Amino acid sequence: KTVHVNGVQYDFDNPEQAERFAKEMAKKAGLQIQFHGDQIKIE
């Protein structure tokens, strides 16, 4: 899974790890999470 945070890309082999990371980042920055198939976007 790939997580995009403000244009920066983070790759994870483990989907659960990717989602946990995305939730942490979104919570910290007060941003929205969008799921697009294999990609998670935080903007």
Rank of each mutant, 00 (worst) to 15 (best):
A22N: 03
V5S: 02
D38A: 04
A18P: 00
A29P: 11
I33H: 05
K1M: 14
T2K: 06
N6C: 15
Q34E: 14
K41V: 15
Q34T: 07
D13M: 05
Q9E: 09
D13V: 01
V3F: 00
E19G: 01
E19W: 07
H4T: 12
Q32S: 12
T2W: 00
K27W: 00
E43F: 10
V5H: 07
I33Q: 04
N14F: 08
L31Y: 04
G37H: 04
D38W: 00
T2H: 13
N14T: 14
Q17D: 14
R20T: 08
N14S: 12
F21H: 05
I42H: 07
N6M: 10
F21R: 01
A26W: 00
N6I: 03
D13E: 10
P15L: 12
A18E: 06
D38T: 06
E24Q: 03
H4S: 10
L31K: 04
K1I: 14
V3N: 03
G30T: 02
E43M: 09
I40N: 06
D38S: 06
F21N: 06
K28C: 15
V8D: 06
Q39M: 13
D13N: 04
K41C: 15
V8M: 08
G30N: 09
Q32T: 14
R20V: 04
Q39K: 06
L31N: 12
F35D: 13
Q9H: 09
E24F: 00
N6Q: 07
V8S: 06
Q32W: 00
A18H: 02
I33W: 00
V3S: 01
Q17Y: 06
K28V: 13
K1N: 11
K28H: 12
V5L: 09
E24W: 00
D11K: 05
D13Q: 04
A18I: 03
Q17G: 05
Q32M: 05
K41N: 11
K27E: 12
Q17C: 15
I42S: 08
E16N: 04
K41D: 11
E16I: 06
K28R: 07
Q34A: 05
G37D: 14
G37E: 14
Y10E: 02
N14L: 09
K23S: 08
F12V: 01
G37W: 00
K28S: 11
F35S: 11
A29N: 12
Q39S: 12
M25F: 02
Q34M: 08
L31G: 08
Y10D: 03
V5P: 02
P15C: 15
I40S: 05
E24D: 09
A29W: 06
A29I: 13
D11F: 13
E24N: 02
E24K: 00
I33T: 04
Q34D: 14
G37S: 07
M25R: 00
V3I: 08
E24S: 03
N6E: 06
F12M: 04
T2A: 05
E43N: 09
K27D: 12
Q34H: 14
K41Q: 10
P15D: 12
H4Q: 09
Q34C: 15
Q9P: 09
D13W: 01
F21Y: 05
F12C: 12
Q34F: 08
G37V: 02
V5K: 04
I33A: 01
G7A: 02
I33M: 02
H4I: 15
V8I: 12
R20Q: 13
R20D: 13
Q9R: 14
A26Y: 01
E16G: 06
D11L: 08
F21I: 05
M25A: 08
K28E: 11
G37F: 00
N6S: 04
H4N: 11
E43R: 05
Q34K: 09
L31M: 12
D11V: 10
D38R: 00
V5A: 03
V5G: 02
V3W: 00
A29C: 15
K41H: 14
Q39R: 03
N6L: 12
Y10T: 04
E16W: 06
D13G: 02
P15H: 12
I33V: 10
H4C: 15
Q17K: 03
V3P: 02
D38H: 02
E19V: 09
L31D: 08
E24H: 02
A22F: 12
A22R: 04
Q39V: 14
Q32K: 12
D38E: 10
G7S: 07
Q32A: 11
K28P: 03
E43Q: 09
A22M: 08
I42M: 10
N6Y: 00
V3H: 03
D38I: 02
Q39T: 13
K27H: 09
E19I: 14
E24T: 01
K27S: 12
D11E: 12
Q17H: 09
